[in-house]
Amino acid sequence: MNDIRRLFSLLLCCCSRQKQKRQIAQIILDDPRRTFIYSGIDALNITNSTSLIIADFGSSHGQNSIQTMKIIIEYLTKMNKLRGSPLIIHNDLPMNDWTRLFQLLAEDNSYRGLANGCSFYEECLPRNCLSIAFSSASLHILSKKPCNINNHCYFHFANENEREIFKNQSKFDFNSFIKYRSQELQSGGILILNIPCVNENGEMGFNFYFDLIYKCAQLLTILTSQELIDFTIPFYLRSLSECIDLELFNRYSLILIKSELICLKSLIVDQYRHGQIRLDRFAKSLSMLMRPGTDLALKQALQINRRSSPDIERISTQFWSLFEEKVKNELYLDDINTYATYLILKKK
C-alpha cells in the first residue's frame, strides 16, 4: 500500500463535510482526521488498568501513520486517558516498505512501535486486546482482484456485471474487516475509519485520469491483448450507504458514534491554476499520485503473462513516461475532488 494514501492525505486540502442523512450541516475543516480522532477518544471507555494498545491498519511507509499515532497519544494525554506508555502497532502487508517505516520510527523515537505484517482483512491480533483501532485511506483496496474488467482497468468504467462482482468483493472485505477489528477491540474501545468513497452521484474526481491511464495502456503497443485484459486495478470506492451498515455493526457488537461524508479538494490543481507550479511539475506530481496502486496492477498483469523482470521494469518506465506526456497534452483543470466517509464505532 506504499504511498497510495497520499492520494487522500499529503496532496489534498480544503476539506468540507457534506450534509447527508445522519450528517451534520456542512462546515469547513482543515483536518477532519484530527477532529474525528478527538471525537473517538472522547467516546473511549476502557475500564481495566492495563496500558492502551493502539493499532493503525494500513500503515504504508509510516509517515502519515506515525503522525496520526502522535495525534492520538497527545489527545489521550490531554484528556487524562493514558495509563503509562501505550503500545503502538503498525499493520500492513508483508511486502510493505517496512525498512522505511522502521527508519522513521527510529528517527521519531516518541513511542514504542511494533510491526504487524498481514492483511487487515484477516485476524491480525489477539482478541480483546485493542483500545483504539484506526485505518485511513486503505479500505478501497480490495483483498484481491475479483475479476478482469474488459475494455478498461478501473471499476468506474466496468460493465454492470463486472461492477456487481467488484461490489460483492468489497462487501465481503468490509464485513471481514469489521468482524476481525470487533474481535480485537476491548469493550469500550473505538474504531476510527477514513474510507475513500464516491459522492452522492457516484463520482470521484480522478475518474478522468484513470481513464487516461487506460488510454495510455492501449497506446502502448508492446502490451499484448491478454495483458491489457489482465490490467485491472483492485480498487472499489464505496458509497456512503455501503460504508454505514448498521446491521453489520450490530452483529459484531459495534455502536455507530459518528459518521460524515467529507469532500477533499486537490491542492496540485489549484497550484497549477495560480502559476505556483509549472506544467512539467504538475504532470510529474500527478503521475506520482496515480502510480503506486496502478503500477502494481500493471506489473502483476505482466507477471501473469510471464514477462521477465527487466521487461516489466522497462514497460513500466515507458508507460509512466507516456502518461506524463498525455497529462500535459490533455489538461483537465476542473476541480479534482475526492471523497471519504469518516466513521467512529465503539465496541459494546
Rank of each mutant, 00 (worst) to 15 (best):
R181K: 15
I244F: 11
E74S: 14
L7N: 12
K348G: 06
F57W: 09
Q186T: 08
L264R: 13
M95K: 14
N109L: 01
I66H: 04
L298C: 03
I268T: 11
N161F: 07
S266C: 12
G275E: 04
N151M: 07
N250C: 10
K328N: 07
Q169D: 05
F208H: 15
N337S: 14
G113W: 04
P32L: 04
S308E: 11
C118G: 09
F174Q: 03
P94A: 04
R278Y: 02
I88P: 11
N151Y: 12
N175L: 04
E325D: 13
S239Y: 07
I71D: 03
L125Q: 08
R34K: 14
K299P: 00
Y38R: 15
A106S: 11
A283G: 06
D30Q: 12
Q276T: 03
C13K: 15
K19Q: 11
L105P: 03
S39T: 09
V327N: 04
C118M: 11
I4M: 09
L125D: 01
N168G: 00
E74G: 06
Q18K: 14
Y214W: 13
L52K: 12
K145F: 08
F120L: 11
S287F: 06
D42L: 14
E260M: 08
Y332K: 14
E203I: 04
L261M: 15
I255Y: 02
Q18F: 03
N168K: 15
A297E: 01
A301Q: 06
D42M: 11
I27H: 05
Y75W: 11
R17E: 02
S138R: 07
V327W: 05
N96L: 07
L11T: 10
L286D: 03
L114K: 07
L343V: 08
I4P: 00
Q218W: 06
L223C: 07
L11I: 09
K145P: 06
Y38W: 05
S309F: 13
C243I: 09
T35E: 04
R307F: 04
S39N: 15
L82N: 01
K145I: 10
K258L: 14
M79P: 00
